[in-house]
Write a protein that binds this DNA or RNA. Structure first.
Lengths: 245, 245
DNA sequence: CGACTATTTGAAGCACGTCAAACATTGTGG
DNA sequence: CCACAATGTTTGACGTGCTTCAAATAGTCG
C-alpha cells in the first residue's frame, strides 16, 4: 500500500550482497556462494586499512577522487553544501557501503566520520586493475551502487512527498533496521539533530519537536547517550502515514 | 559557489559517455574511442526496437524486471506512487538513458512515455550474457547508472534545500540543457505542470504561479504548444539563488 | 564544578498548500 | 471549419505546516 514498503526493503539487504548463482564469486580466496562487499577478501587485501576519528573528513566534495573507501566499521556522512551554508546530507554510509565511485574523477560529496570509522582505502587505478582481473568484483560494485541508488530514490520520495512527521519516522525506522537492535530493542542514534534535519530537508527545531511528539505518544523512548527504543518497529513503520496527533 | 554548479554539470555529459582511453571500447563493430550507450551497436543489435505512444506504460513499479530498455528517442517518466495517491517523479529519462537495472528483479518505479518513445528492449538474461562476453559493456552501463545516481543526488539537494522558485529554475535550466535549444534559444517542455510538480515535490499551482512570475520578470518566455525560451540561460542558472521578486 | 554545545520548547511569521473558480488549449464530432 | 466538451493551466483567497527567531534546559567534557 505504501511505496516505501511496497517493494522489498532494500535496507535490510544492503549489507548482504548475495550473488546470484549464475554470478558466483570466483575469487581464489572466496569460493562461497555469497560474497559481501564488507567481507570480500580481494578488496581487503588490495587496500590499506585506515582509521578516522569522529569528525574527521575522508574527502571533500569536488576533490579529485583518487581513492575509494570501503566502510568496515562506523558511520560516514556524505553531504553537499550550498554557497550560503544550506546543507543536504545525501547519505549515511554503513559498514559494507562503498564511498565513492563516480565517472568523473571528483568526489560528489564531502564524507565525514560521525563515529570512529575504519575503512579500506584503495586507489582508483588499483581498483580498476582489480576489476578487470577479478570480473565478479565489477558485479559486486555494481550491486553496491544500485543499492545506493535505490536508497537515494527512497530518500527522494521522502523529501518530495512525506510530511515532516513521516520523514522522521522513516528515518528512525530505516536507521533502526540498518544498525540492528539489542535484546531490549534499543539502538544507538549517532547522528545529531542537525544531521537528521539535513538528511530530511527539515530544520533542527522541527526534528526535535517531532521526536518529542513521538516520545509523548509512546511510539519511541529515549535513553541516555543517544540510545533509542522503538517498542514496536513493525507498527511504527506501518504507521508512517498515520500522523501522530 | 553553488553546489548545483560547483562541480561539472553531469547533465551536459549524460548523453556522451566517452570512455577513458584505458577503458577503450573493444566492440568488433565499434573501434572508436567513444562509445555512447545510445549509439552502442552491441546493444542495438542484441535488443528489439519497440515504440510507445504518449502515455503508454513501459513497466510498472514492483513488476518483475525481465527487460531493460535503452531510450533511443522521446522522454520517459519514472515515478513512484504512495498508497494515498501522492506521487514522486524520480527521473525523466532521455535518449541514451537506460531503464532500469536493479539488483532485485523488480522495477523500482513505473515508467511511462510522456512523448512518443522508441526504445531498445533487451531481456535481462540476454544482457547479462552480453556483458560477460563484451566486458566494456559493463563499464558503459556502470557509467550510465552513476550518471543517474548523480542526477538523483542533485534532485535530492533541490527537494531538500531549495525554495520552490529555485527548484523550478533548476528544473527548467537542466531540462533546457538536456533537450538542447534551437537557433532562437527555444525548446519543448513536454512535461505537464503535474509532472514538474511531482518531480520537484511541489503542487501544480505553485509551479504554475512560479512560471508566471518568471514570465512576468522576463526571465523566460512561453511560446505556443509548450515551447519555452530562456533568453539568458547562463544568467538564469546562476540566478537560481536570487529569488525573483 | 563550570563553560560550552546540543537539544528542547515557545511565539510569531511566511512560504507553500488547499480549495475554488476562471481561463486557455486540445481534441472531437457535426 | 466551427461548436463544444474535456482537460490542462492560471489566478485568487485563505489556511496551515514548517521555519525563524529567541530563550530555557539538558547534556558533555575539560
Amino acid at each position: 500500500m505504501y511505496a516505501l514498503h511496497e517493494t522489498r526493503d532494500p535496507i535490510e539487504l544492503r549489507n548482504v550482497h548475495t550473488l546470484k548463482s549464475n554470478d558466483e564469486c570466483g575469487h581464489a580466496d572466496c569460493g562461497k556462494a555469497a560474497c559481501t562487499s564488507d567481507f570480500c577478501p580481494v578488496i581487503h587485501e588490495a587496500g590499506k586499512s585506515k582509521t578516522f576519528a569522529k569528525g574527521d573528513v575522508l574527502f571533500w566534495d569536488g576533490d579529485e577522487s583518487d581513492y575509494l573507501y570501503l566502510v568496515v566499521s562506523g558511520i560516514v556522512r556524505g553531504s553537499k553544501l550550498l554557497g550560503d551554508g544550506r546543507r543536504q546530507v545525501a547519505r549515511f554510509a554503513f559498514p559494507g557501503d562503498i564511498l565513492e565511485y563516480r565517472r568523473q574523477w571528483n568526489y560528489p560529496y564531502t564524507a565525514e566520520a560521525i563515529t570512529p570509522v575504519t575503512a579500506i582505502a584503495i586507489s582508483r587505478q588499483r581498483f580498476e586493475q582489480l576489476m578487470s582481473r577479478v570480473p565478479c568484483l565489477r558485479g559486486l560494485v555494481m550491486q553496491v551502487i544500485l543499492d545506493e541508488l535505490e536508497g537515494t530514490r527512497e530518500q527522494l520520495l521522502a523529501l518530495g512527498r512525506l510530511s515532516a512527521t513521516e520523514r522522521v519516522a522513516y528515518f528512525l525506522s530505516s536507521t533502526a533496521r540498518h544498525l540492528g537492535r539489542d535484546s531490549e530493542g534499543a539502538f544507538d542514534l549517532p547522528m545529531s539533530r542537525q544531521d537528521i534535519a539535513d538528511y530530511l530537508g527539515l530544520t533542527i527545531e522541527t526534528v526535535s519537536r517531532i521526536i518529542s511528539k513521538l516520545k509523548r505518544a509512546g511510539k519511541i523512548r529515549l535513553l541516555p547517550s543517544g540510545r533509542i527504543i522503538i517498542p514496536d518497529l513493525e507498527e511504527f513503520s506501518d504507521d508512517l502515514l498515520a500522523d501522530v496527533a
